[in-house]
């Protein structure tokens, strides 16, 4: 398969992200925040896709890596003068250490990756329900510890005075980095080996692929991306532990499933589509004008619409909007003609 023909596989998701960003720039300042939020969600879902999409194993633990990344980036960037108020009980080392914006994002990715590796090392041996419940347990523990432990962060209060550096540019670039990493990974032999284990674990194992090792690689990479996305998120809005718990887990899973968990395009399309709908109904709480028609809904409608949508997609189109396929150009006729000619001459 030629490189040119494969180009749309990564270009289309990237262009969708850029188009969203441009749309965000074109609208009013007030609405721009929604677009930035959408882009951060895309980054989180792409991280989720790297593991779930490629391995076919359900993980509820991804948001715990987002949370860990958010904590890392948040704690390290709050100005030193504000730290005694923002984090009353924090460890001395964290109270005196500060890093810049980009460094905080990089560190968030590193911490997310390391945490995912440490968790995945034992857990990736499990499969099926046991794996699902174990990753859920990781989510519960992370939420519990981050929510109460004052030594490592703001505990119950949630973050305050984190520099709000995630604007539309930072969100777009961050999102594009995630897409590039996810695509690069799925084209490497590691990505292909993992996809082989997804399609047929027994055959893949027979071909010499270590399922445990391949899943661990993807889990770690997904954890790093999640940590990075968490860093982006905490620079966007003040977060608390419960913002990064069950609801976010559900919403991001919904995005992946609606889009189609089998492809990068599906992850991006799902995140954009679901976020669009979700944001629309969230904004409609304060009345939105749709072509002169004043729409006003009660708070909580967005979640209900999302739930119904997700059930419908699962029933009517279980492989998602994209059907789990990437977008690539159709095979050219000439290649086939050449082959025929070659066959005729021999």
């Amino acid at each position: 398969m030629s490189v040119a023909r494969r180009l749309p596989e990564v270009l289309v998701p990237a262009l969708l992200v850029v188009a969203t960003a441009l749309l965000g720039l074109a609208v009013s300042n007030y609405l721009e925040g929604y677009f930035v939020n959408t882009l951060v969600k895309v980054a989180i879902v792409v991280g989720l896709y790297v593991f779930i999409g490629n391995s076919g194993v359900l993980s509820f633990g991804q948001i715990s890596f987002v949370a860990v990344g958010a904590w890392t980036a948040g704690v390290l960037t709050v100005p030193r003068a504000d730290k005694p108020i923002a984090f009353p009980g924090i460890a001395h080392f964290l109270a005196t250490t500060n890093v810049g914006n980009s460094a905080s994002l990089a560190l968030a990715a590193v911490v997310g990756g390391v945490f995912a590796f440490a968790v995945g090392l034992p857990l990736m041996r499990l499969s099926g329900l046991a794996a699902g419940i174990a990753t859920f347990a990781v989510l519960e523990i992370t939420n519990n510890v981050l929510g109460y432990e004052g030594l490592i962060g703001p505990a119950l209060n949630g973050f305050s005075s984190v520099p709000p550096t995630t604007g539309i540019w930072q969100a777009t670039i961050g999102c594009l980095i995630c897409i590039a990493v996810a695509y690069a990974y799925q084209r490497t032999r590691f990505g292909r080996m993992l996809r082989a284990t997804r399609e047929d674990p027994a055959a893949a194992a027979a071909a010499g692929i270590s399922i445990h090792r391949q899943r661990l690689v993807a889990f770690t990479l997904a954890g790093a991306l999640a940590g990075f996305a968490g860093g982006l998120y905490v620079h966007l809005q003040p977060l608390a532990a419960n913002d990064l718990f069950l609801d976010l887990t559900f919403i991001t899973l919904a995005m992946l499933v609606v889009g189609g968990s089998g492809s990068l395009l599906g992850a991006v399309v799902g995140a954009l589509a679901v976020n669009g709908i979700y944001t629309f109904f969230t904004a409609a709480v304060n009345t939105v004008d749709v072509f002169g028609w004043h729409l006003h809904v009660r708070a909580g409608t967005a979640e209900i619409v999302l739930g119904v949508l997700m059930v419908l997609v699962l029933i009517l189109r279980p492989s998602g909007l994209t059907g789990g396929r990437e977008l690539s150009l159709p095979r050219r006729r000439r290649a086939l003609a050449d082959l025929e000619k070659a066959r005729a001459t021999t």
């Binding site: 076919g56 359900l58 009660r298 708070a299 909580g300 209900i304 739930g307 997700m310 699962l314």
Partner: peptide, 20 residues
Amino acid sequence: TVMLVATFAVAFLLQNIALL
């Protein structure tokens, strides 16, 4: 997996209906 995610969605849905 699809069924598990579906029940997850139903749970979320019912919870938010109750909230509303």
